[in-house]
Every structure is written in C-alpha cells, then in structure tokens.
C-alpha cells in the first residue's frame, strides 16, 4: 500500500518537474521537433488504419440497432459524436501509449543502463530537460493531432461502411454527421488528448528515466509504461469527461 503512495508521489513530483522544466531555457525545440516525428508521424499509419477499421466496425454495429428504431438518419451523427467525444481521443491515446509509451520506456531505460544519461550529465547538459521534457511535450502536441486524424478516419470509415449499405451521398452523410454538433462536442474532447499525451509522456519517461536495473530493467520499464499509462488514461478520462460535462453542460447529450 505504501508502495502505491510512494509511486504516486514519485510520479507526481516527476510530472511537476516536467511542467516546471518546460518553460525554462533551453527549450530544446530541436528535440521536441524530433520527438513529434517519433511520437506523431510514426504513429500516424497505426492511428489512421485503426481509425478506419473502427469506423467501419462501429457503423456495422450501431446500424442494426438504429435501423430497428427507424433512426437510420442518426447513423452519421452517432458516428461523428462517438468519435469526436470518446473513441477518437481514447483509442488514439491507447494506441500511442502502446507504441510511444513502450518506446520511451525502453529507450530511456536503456540509456540509463548504458550510462548514456550519466554521460549527458557529465557533458554538463541537463539530461532531464534534454531527454524527458521534449518527449512529454511531443506527446502533448502530437496526441491531439493524432486524435483529429483518428476522428477523420473514423467518420471516413463510417461513411464507407454506410455507403456500401445505403449509397448515401458524402454530402448528406457529412450534413447529418455535423447536424446539431456543438463545439463543446469537439473541442474539449480533443483537448482532452493533451492530458492523455501528458500522461503517456510522463509515465513512460518516469519508468525509463528512473529505472536503473540494467538490461533487464529495460523490458520492465517498457511494460510498466504501457500498463500504467493505459490505465491512467482511462481513469483520467472518467474525471475529464465529468469536468467537460460540468464546464459545458450542453455537451452531456
């Protein structure tokens, strides 16, 4: 039990240290840029294909139920709302947690094991600022973008699936998809991805940066990164959704 509190405290301090370091020079823009490439661009294919497939599958599932109620006109809206509000941010975050989280955990743990982190310090560089902060910032920046791509692909997949079944026109589909849509259905859930990105970056870097168990610690850091960040994303989602509902009562549809 104490172990849990110890862990929570350590992660919390680590997160605060990240936030505190972000706004100090040097800003490590080059590293941030590089890691946006790592976390964002290299996750794009994964996110796009997953989004497309999920879009198709979700329409196949919801369609039956909605047809039963004669509410086929609701299919596009359900699709867009589903992806904008929840599926987009959450699934993108879980995918990135798997790919980038594991990567960060393993890479940093390996750098620790092979004394590369010490070497950076020995060269008078701030290893935390150099290794951790750009990774977290890159996750925070990349995840909302990936979420938008996920949303886009989800709706595209939904459209393709619906088109094969009912030959609906793209224009009508989009009109219906956005009918009655509020900014609060899109902006806060997408910004939610910022928090998810922060969670993924912080947790994975925490495990990677603080592990000091040699080669065997590398695998453990990667596994722990994925498990803990995925879990925290879902827990945070519960709280964030509630906060969004409280802040934008209109979005609780």
């Amino acid at each position: 039990m104490i172990g849990i509190f110890d862990f929570v405290g350590a992660v919390g301090l680590f997160g605060l240290r990240v936030i505190g370091s972000v706004f100090r020079i040097p800003f490590e823009l080059e590293q941030i840029w590089r890691h946006i490439g790592e976390a964002g661009v290299r996750s794009l294919a994964l996110v796009l294909s997953a989004g497309l497939a999920l879009g198709v599958v979700m329409t196949l599932h919801t369609r039956g139920a909605l047809v039963m109620f004669g509410a086929t006109a609701m299919i596009p809206k359900l699709q867009s709302l589903g992806f904008f509000v929840e599926i987009g941010p959450l699934v993108a975050a879980l995918l990135v947690a798997g790919r980038v989280g594991a990567g960060n955990g393993a890479v940093l743990a390996d750098m620790r094991a092979t004394e590369q982190i010490d070497a950076i310090e020995a060269l008078s560089m701030d290893s935390f600022k150099f290794l951790v902060v750009p990774r977290v910032v890159a996750c925070v920046i990349a995840l909302p973008l990936l979420t938008v791509f996920m949303d886009f692909c989800g709706i595209l997949g939904g459209y393709l699936s619906e088109y094969t079944l009912s030959h609906i026109s793209l224009h009508l589909y989009l009109t219906r998809a956005f009918q009655g849509m509020q900014w609060s259905n899109f902006v806060p859930p997408t910004l939610k991805a910022l928090v998810f990105g922060f969670i993924i970056g912080t947790i994975s870097c925490f495990f990677g940066y603080t592990t000091n168990e040699g080669a065997e610690g590398v695998g453990r850091a990667a596994t722990s990164s994925v498990v803990v960040s995925s879990l925290l994303i879902i827990l945070a989602d519960v709280i964030l959704v509630k906060i969004i509902f409280l802040t934008f009562p209109g979005s609780a549809t």
Binding site: W33, G37, G40, V41, L44, P144, L145, L146, V148, F152
Partner: peptide, 14 residues
C-alpha cells in the same frame, strides 16, 4: 518535411 506535413494537416483538419 514529413513532420511539417503532419502538424499542418492535423491543424487544418482541426
């Protein structure tokens, strides 16, 4: 260039 395209197209979609 790839990263640039990624960021710009993401923002454009948004």
């Amino acid at each position: 260039v790839t990263i640039g395209i990624f960021i710009v197209s993401g923002l454009a979609l948004f």
